[in-house]
Design a protein around this nucleic acid. Structure first.
Lengths: 233, 233
DNA sequence: ATCGCGCATATACCCAGACATAATATCAAT
DNA sequence: ATTGATATTATGTCTGGGTATATGCGCGAT
């Protein structure tokens, strides 16, 4: 009750969570109907609905019309990973951020990427290599292919001052993305730019983004050895 | 309008998304007030509220009392990673799942873990090593420390048939978790169990879970070489 | 110029009632 | 026994009214 004596949807939500966690309502339990809960808590059905809906969104309960609301047996826990702009991650650690454009060329799309993005192999792309430093130590190596068709203005963009990631984000609001994480051994390029011996295990993140079914860019970001990505829930 | 001629909160939400994506409301735009939008769409204010609230939850817009609703400049895109039970991930690939308990012992907590979990170094834990196979090929090596205090019943659990992860999930509903991803080179154990040369880059996921501030378990899961974790949004 | 206070305002949330929809249960006809 | 129509029921959503709360802004005192 954070308002004048009324039961808030948060109170309902918290009480339900409590009953589940304390074992009053074990896994699989069918909970009372919205009407019954509303009566018990002395609030409107809409309030209970809001609380239970939120719990359903978080995967705590499962709701079905007519069947009712049930405590989830296998809570599909999902961790949220925030894909931040590199500069922000670096600055968050109170380190000094530095960016460098290493390579820039207009070229034909590599066959493997053409296949992946479903583009003809004659398609032109902008191929970029960049480095991101934290306190002048290698932080991330970025390799990127940009679909010029989808973002023609990139031809005039100055990518020396601002990184392509920040530039793209401010210009093309993408709608869908697909992300891969994996571990690889450093190849020649990586070894050179990340100042590490060839074969060193490094953390790699690949992302493909689309703007309404039109591929925009594919980027491969490789972090310095020892990098840990973390999240909590 | 999916009901009899009424404007649903989804219609409002979709239209707002459309206006943002088509550039009618560029980044940073202050959108009309809820009342104004409700008038425009011919629906109740609560309906507009629901739509905008959902967009705010997804990070598309930013809402502040008195200021209004603004199109987010730096959309903090967050990818959701589903932390599924290993068996399910394997079965999803139509592979045959097999599990093996490799090692099980009650021991004093290792100092580094005691520090990490804020437990006394005299604390007893159960230390487990397990292997998960897909079609009889190594899939994941699991190394786990369980706080016996938090889960005393684990002493009687048969962990030979069911893996500790599934057992724990069905018994202790944890409340908080912290996850780390990183890339490491295979050490002796990993090399042996994952059938790969020492030093091979492998993808590792560490997770600590708590039940109301009480540490439950720390697990380190290492995937076979070449494993890719993927997600989309 | 700067600080503190009050007012206006936009969002946050609540309520009671209504209808829509999906899924189950029931029962009759084949 | 199987199928198909029908009633029931719990959730999903909308309405239009309300109060609560945070906060930007102006105004006056320092």
């Amino acid at each position: 009750m954070h308002q004048s004596g009324k039961t808030s949807f948060q109170d309902v939500r918290d009480e339900v969570i409590h009953r589940i966690q304390s074992g009053i309502w074990p896994q699989g339990t069918l909970l009372p109907t919205e009407v019954e809960l509303a009566e018990e808590f002395g609030c409107a059905r809409a309030t209970v609905n809001r609380a239970l809906r939120e719990l359903a969104e978080n995967g705590v309960v499962d709701r079905k019309r007519k069947s009712g609301t049930r405590v989830n047996t296998a809570p599909v826990k999902q961790a949220k990973i925030e894909i931040a702009i590199v500069r922000h991650s670096v600055e968050e650690q109170n380190a000094i951020y530095r960016y460098a454009l290493v390579h820039k060329e207009i070229t034909a799309i590599p066959p493997w990427l053409a296949a992946q993005l479903d583009l003809p192999i004659t398609h032109k792309v902008m191929y970029l290599k960049c480095m991101h430093y934290a306190d002048n130590r290698p932080y991330q190596f970025e390799e990127r292919w940009v679909n010029i068709d989808a973002v023609p203005t990139i031809l005039d963009a100055d990518l020396v001052e601002t990184g392509p990631n920040e530039w793209l984000l401010s210009v093309v609001p993408f709608t869908d993305a697909q992300i891969n994480f994996c571990a690889v051994g450093a190849d020649a390029d990586l070894s050179e730019f990340l100042s590490t011996p060839t074969g060193t295990p490094v953390f790699q993140l690949e992302r493909t983004t689309w703007l309404q079914n039109k591929p925009v860019t594919f980027v491969r970001m490789t972090y310095h050895p020892g990098y840990r990505m973390s999240t909590s829930y």
